[in-house]
Each structure stands twice: as structure tokens, then as C-alpha cells.
Amino acid sequence: MTIGSTYPGLTTRQLDRLPRSLPILNIAGHVWHTSGDGGVNLQTVLKFSHQLLAAGWSPKTQIIHGSPLTASHSMLHIIPQVDLLIIQFLYGN
């Protein structure tokens, strides 16, 4: 599970160390009228998801849209919407 992460410099060789069956949830923030969550650009988070897809994983990507209080980089780990996504990802619906 990743929250607002891009893993710059991640190589295919490093990805190959992970089992293909590993479930991956990639959460990104998008603050109103900006290019991302204030710390990480949304397109780079989406690029990471595409890199995972190209390498054989099936990541689930969720984008949290909202204000600086609900979608900024430093807030993503403490908002209830993200908590719910994590719970559903780890334990099912």
C-alpha cells in the first residue's frame, strides 16, 4: 500500500523481487486546481501505477480529491476516507 508515493528511481529489477500476486493499493491526493497533493505531483503517482501495470501487477489506484484539509500530502494518512480505503483493501468490503 502506498499513500502519496512515487518511488522515484524504482527499477524493474527491484520490482521483480516482489511476488506478482502481491496486492497493491496506490493512493494519491489531488487538491483543488493544483497538480497534486502539494507534495507529490498526481501524474507521477499515476505513472507509478502504470509502471506497476506494465511490470505485471494489477494495482488499485485511488485518487482523493478535495481541499488542502482533505487531500493534501500531509493529511492523506489521517482522513477517514483513506482509513476506509485501507480497511477495505486489507480486510475486504
Rank of each mutant, 00 (worst) to 15 (best):
V40Q: 08
L25H: 00
P23F: 08
S58E: 09
L76S: 01
I27Q: 06
L52S: 06
H50R: 12
P68D: 10
G66Y: 03
I78K: 09
K47Y: 15
K60I: 05
I24T: 05
V40K: 13
V31T: 10
A71N: 01
G39Q: 07
L46R: 07
P80T: 02
Q88N: 06
P23I: 07
T12D: 15
I63N: 02
R17M: 13
F89M: 00
S58W: 06
P59S: 08
Q88V: 03
P59V: 07
Q81R: 12
S49K: 00
R17E: 14
A54R: 14
P19K: 10
I64R: 00
Q43H: 13
A28S: 01
L85K: 00
L46Y: 06
I63P: 00
I24F: 07
Q81C: 02
V40D: 07
L85R: 00
Q43R: 14
M75R: 08
S58Y: 13
F48C: 05
R17N: 10
Q81L: 04
L15M: 12
R13W: 10
N41L: 12
R17K: 15
Q43M: 13
P80A: 06
T12F: 14
L69V: 09
I78L: 08
D37S: 11
A54F: 05
W32L: 14
K47P: 07
S49Y: 05
L46D: 07
L76R: 00
H50W: 11
G38V: 05
H65S: 10
T70N: 09
L15C: 05
M75H: 12
D83E: 10
V40A: 02
T12S: 13
H50A: 12
I86P: 02
S67K: 08
L46S: 06
P68F: 09
I63Q: 05
K60V: 07
S49M: 03
S35A: 15
S67A: 13
S49G: 07
H73C: 05
Q51K: 14
F48D: 05
I87N: 15
P19M: 01
I24E: 02
S74I: 10
R20C: 09
W57N: 06
K60Q: 12
R20P: 02
S74E: 12
Q43C: 06
K47D: 15
L85F: 04
G29K: 01
